[in-house]
Design a binder for these strands. Structure first.
Lengths: 348, 348
DNA sequence: CGCGGGATTGCACAGCATTGCAACCACGCG
DNA sequence: CGCGTGGTTGCAATGCTGTGCAATCCCGCG
């Protein structure tokens, strides 16, 4: 005896009404006599019936499913972002369907690619696809559009003009400039920027703006690019950049991500014995929760999680025929203890 | 003109075949002529068709959806656990449907409760419900069972005997003992355990075993219980337990969670100026990735994420009629730098 | 050339819920 | 007492795919 899901027909039988009546009893505003509805609800309760949303979705023009494509969900900032977003969706009555782009560690397994991830989500008829990771080729955006699904890109490269995708970007260039000015004000003269190899333009833009601003002050920046967006990348960068006998004598590091910056800072402090911020200043980007911990006190460029989540939700909830939007999230610098005090006024 | 999802009928029309043929072309092992299948696939490709899994699920006895109920997804250990689990599910062709138990911060909003979360997932006809957070009342387990859905409980209180729920538990009692022995071996005499208010028996069991083992050595343990499972809880505990003039002069703290332990350790070190491990030893539970960072080097009881994920996956994949199982995950102590060196042999 | 048999294919129904439409009920008013 | 009206309710079609069953086709063999 295998228990099956209870169906509306079961409830109808038990309540002595038609299947339609059951359906209406669960549809707010439908025309049902109060006592009929009560009888139906009672039967449903007794049987443990709930509406099958999958079947219901066959009728509705949009499902309640929001597909989220992410990777690196263990990352301190990304996990916080994902947590906030999924909670917000839920509060709106939407459901989170996750595709994790994390590579399968088993030998012989192929890495999940973005194209397949999107197709997967389309198979589930999601109403929106949110991209937290990876860069969407225009072709994928078009694929979604062809199925009436909007894409929401968070800190991702913008797609071709006219593509059906909402873009949400924190001010990467502004943040990069903020970081550069702050390090320069601290008196740093030998700057380095550490970034991961991923193609995401947001991180590139942060680094580029940092370099450009440094150039305006007559400084050149050592650019260290390697590996994924991870703590270990910061560790490796610090080891390589700050190796003993390094002629450059780097005194200011900008990590395009808090996790990278923390890896670099911790390695400098605890492994290489360099005082932060006296000998070396470090600045990050994101303001992940752990950056404020007293073990780190990382000065960083904050992109407000609240604002980011609110903008994302707004994009997801916008009507299907709304024009494509572009939302910018302001950033600001949160001063903690990883950068030397500013000497004199900040450069303009 | 609103683009709709492409259906099998559209493809059939274009390929000049019946709808059944389309269905079969997408069903491995079905009886279709090779060139028919080719024609169908070509038409599908041109139209951007993919099978509607929602409709397909109406037929199949089990869906590909696995519901995960979690909270505190920003937590360093939980996020890593969730990341690993969702990636593993995906590699098996299953899809993750998340319910986030995190309370809605907006005023007037009600906290999402576990019962509603389970009902939500049943509405989507998930094949399994995985509980990463919260304690499942027997009644909920029964509700799932009535709908033919198994529950998988991870480090959650075991339900009533005979309930249709697989249980996966790391050895909380063993871990608690391990922690106590190690602190005692380090010469600590004034012990404290810090735990959150949540009812989850796993954390209680860790604390209880710790206290029992300490009692065997003739020591009593100060028990500090307050707030959620968070960094701030550890901070508050340290401030209160280690306040100046505290007559007990606590010299060993066990945090039932790495995040709690880190909060306590950081506060002792950086805010209260107490040397760890010279003046105070701290030990955690989980072995979250950040615990190994050089800024922390927290000695902790490890529950292997790999083993935990593998056991969870095994439970999810077990056939619907399999007997209920109980899987235990071994724990071990990972020595880092937050506990003073052991003096002499460890107590038995 | 007729027939048996395997491979294909279409029909129709199943699976679950929603909804337009029409039937139906009771009731009040002229 | 007849009829209009508003509220209920059931029928049947719809949305989309999977699949048992029977019809069909083609091929080879006697």
């Amino acid at each position: 005896m295998e228990p099956r899901f209870v169906t509306a027909a079961d409830v109808a039988r038990r309540a002595g009404v038609s299947r339609s009546a059951v359906s209406r009893a669960f549809t707010p505003g439908a025309s049902v006599a109060p006592e009929t509805r009560a009888r139906v609800l009672e039967a449903a309760e007794a049987l443990g019936y709930r509406v099958n949303r999958l079947a219901r979705t066959l009728h509705r023009d949009r499902s309640d499913l929001v597909g989220i494509i992410g990777a690196n969900l263990g990352n301190p900032y990304i996990s916080a972002q994902f947590d906030a977003l999924s909670a917000a969706l839920q509060a709106e009555g939407l459901q989170t369907l996750l595709v994790n782009l994390r590579p399968d560690p088993r030998p012989g397994a192929e890495a999940p690619d973005l194209g397949r991830a999107v197709e997967r989500l389309l198979e589930y008829r999601v109403r929106t696809v949110v991209l937290l990771s990876g860069a969407a080729p225009d072709e994928l955006v078009r694929l979604c559009a062809a199925n009436g699904v909007r894409m929401v890109l968070i800190n991702r490269p913008a797609p071709a003009a006219g593509a059906l995708a909402d873009v949400i970007d924190s001010d990467a260039a502004g943040g990069g400039r903020l970081a550069a000015r702050r390090l320069i004000a601290a008196g740093c003269r030998q700057l380095a920027v550490v970034l991961s190899e991923s193609r995401t333009s947001a991180k590139l833009a942060r680094a580029d703006a940092f370099c450009a601003e440094a150039a305006r002050a007559g400084l050149t920046v050592r650019r260290w690019t390697q590996g994924p967006n991870s703590y270990e990348t910061g560790v490796a960068a610090a080891r390589s950049l700050l190796a003993e006998g390094d002629p450059a004598r780097i005194d200011g590091i900008f990590g395009v991500t808090d996790e990278i910056a923390l890896g670099a800072m911790n390695t400098a402090r605890h492994e290489l014995g360099l005082a932060v911020p006296e000998r070396l200043s470090v600045i990050g980007f994101d303001d992940a929760p752990i950056s404020g911990w007293s073990s780190h006190r990382l000065t960083t460029v904050r992109q407000s999680l609240r604002a980011l989540t609110a903008a994302t939700l707004e994009a997801i909830l916008s009507p299907a025929d709304a024009a494509v939007s572009h939302r910018a999230i302001a950033v600001d610098l949160v001063e903690r203890g990883s950068v030397a005090p500013a000497r004199g006024p900040a450069p303009t």
